[in-house]
Write a protein that binds this DNA or RNA. Structure first.
Lengths: 108, 108
DNA sequence: TAAGTATTTAAGCAAGTTCTAAAGTAATTG
DNA sequence: CAATTACTTTAGAACTTGCTTAAATACTTA
């Protein structure tokens, strides 16, 4: 049942339902915002804009968390194709991709 | 203990620790991204850019959830000073504030 | 003023997030 | 080749999120 108060017309309501109830573009963007809503992941992105490529080992020292925690954050960034990795010996270097959504994050 | 592999110098590491281990600006931005990482809240923001002021009752019909759910999302937007409300009779109209972080969200 | 409408608040639950410790894999080195 | 280092994966605890239902509040109207 519709509300009675001074509200939208039936047509306006239908239009907004069509536009918003299912909207993959906005939903995809929300998912990206969720990815960068973690302070460590957002910091990793800023840091990789500055440093090009950094290993897990250094990231764990910078943020003061375990290597496991850093590795899990990097795996999420990688799963969203925001970061990529290159193995050099036993060291894994992470760097940013050219993902278009990265432009949603302003430079420092 | 520092890593042994081909990594950052001690000085680079200290500089990055200083810059990132505690960084309220980035942390505040991450918190905002968390706010807009929910698809309904992000859609409400886009919708209010289009419609100026909309009541809880219409939002519940647009998104197909209960009024309680919408009200809780709006309360979060309000707590972060992204939205404000005006009561007209028994109807509560919500609209956007001029919060600077809103510029982080591109127009449709 | 009783009933109905709009909204908020509270309680509770299921699902998701993020950390740690521990175990597993792979490369390096004494 | 055993030990060490770098990293990943797994499992589990603590916490957060987002919904629903139900109750509470506020306003309107018959």
């Amino acid at each position: 049942m519709r509300c009675v108060g001074p509200t939208l017309s039936d047509k306006e309501l239908r239009d907004l339902q069509d536009q918003y109830s299912f909207n993959p573009e906005i939903e995809e963007r929300a998912e990206f915002y969720n990815l960068i809503s973690n302070p460590i992941r957002l910091k990793i992105i800023h840091l990789l804009r500055e440093k090009e490529a950094v290993c897990v080992c250094d990231l764990k020292d910078i943020f003061g968390v375990t290597a496991a925690a850093v590795s899990q954050h990097l795996a999420k960034l990688k799963a969203h194709r925001i970061a990529k990795s290159v193995k050099q010996g036993q060291t894994v270097f992470y760097s940013l991709t050219e993902h278009p959504f990265l432009s949603l994050i302003p430079l420092q």
